Simulated scan of single mutants.
Amino acid sequence: MTDNEISRHIVDCAIEVHRTLGGPGLLESVYEEALAWELRQRGLNAQSQIQVPVSYKGNKLAAPLRLDLLVNGRGVVEVKSTIDYNPIFEAQALTYLRLLDLKLALVVNFGEQYVRNGIHRVVHGL
């Protein structure tokens, strides 16, 4: 499955989750769990809360980052639920891509009235 196909599934699942849960207003953890479940129902491997090690000058730091979802080992999903979207969310997703040497991330903000308006694609090395 290509990165674009994974991306399409993530978008479709995010729309389904947002619609089924009644739109914005819930915690990020609720949307994350529902999105992971929906992705798995469609046959994708969705792993939640993946630890991403960070090193500084060759030394592994004690506090790893936590990635919301990793889909099929290739697609990063950063789940948000806010009315005040901040471009720093995309920078965070790009950091995950760099650390994991991956190419595609989606920041999905379930805080939007229409979730399709809250989906931001982030790429690294394309």
Rank of each mutant, 00 (worst) to 15 (best):
Asn117Ser: 10
Ile119Phe: 05
Asp3Tyr: 07
Ile88Val: 10
Ala63Arg: 15
Asp3Arg: 06
Asn59Glu: 09
His9Gln: 14
Met1Asn: 10
Asn109Glu: 09
Gly22Cys: 05
Leu65Ile: 09
His9Leu: 11
Arg40Gly: 10
Leu67Lys: 08
Leu97Glu: 07
His18Glu: 01
Pro64Asn: 01
Glu90His: 09
Thr95Ser: 14
His9Met: 05
Thr20Asn: 06
Asn117Ile: 02
Asn117Glu: 15
Leu21Tyr: 02
Lys60Gly: 09
Glu16Gly: 05
Ala14Ile: 09
Lys80Gly: 03
Leu97Val: 02
Leu67Ser: 02
Ser81Phe: 00
Leu44Thr: 01
Lys80Ser: 00
Gly125Leu: 03
Ile10Tyr: 10
Pro87Trp: 00
Glu5Trp: 12
Ala34Arg: 08
Val52Lys: 08
Gly23Gln: 13
Gly22Asn: 12
Thr82Phe: 11
Ser81His: 03
Pro24Phe: 11
Asn86Pro: 04
Leu70Ile: 13
Glu32Gly: 08
Glu112Leu: 12
Glu28Gly: 04
Glu33Cys: 10
Arg8Gly: 12
Pro87Gln: 01
Ser48Asn: 04
Val76Asp: 08
Asp3Cys: 05
Ile15Met: 06
Ser55Gly: 02
Val79Phe: 02
Val77Glu: 01
Arg116Gly: 06
Gly111Phe: 07
Gly118Thr: 01
Tyr31Lys: 15
Tyr96Gln: 01
Ala91Arg: 11
Ile119Tyr: 04
Arg42Glu: 09
Ala46Cys: 03
Leu102Met: 12
Gly75Met: 11
Trp37Phe: 15
Gly23Tyr: 00
Ala34Ser: 12
Pro53Asn: 13
Arg42Thr: 09
Pro24Asn: 04
Asn86His: 12
Glu28Asp: 01
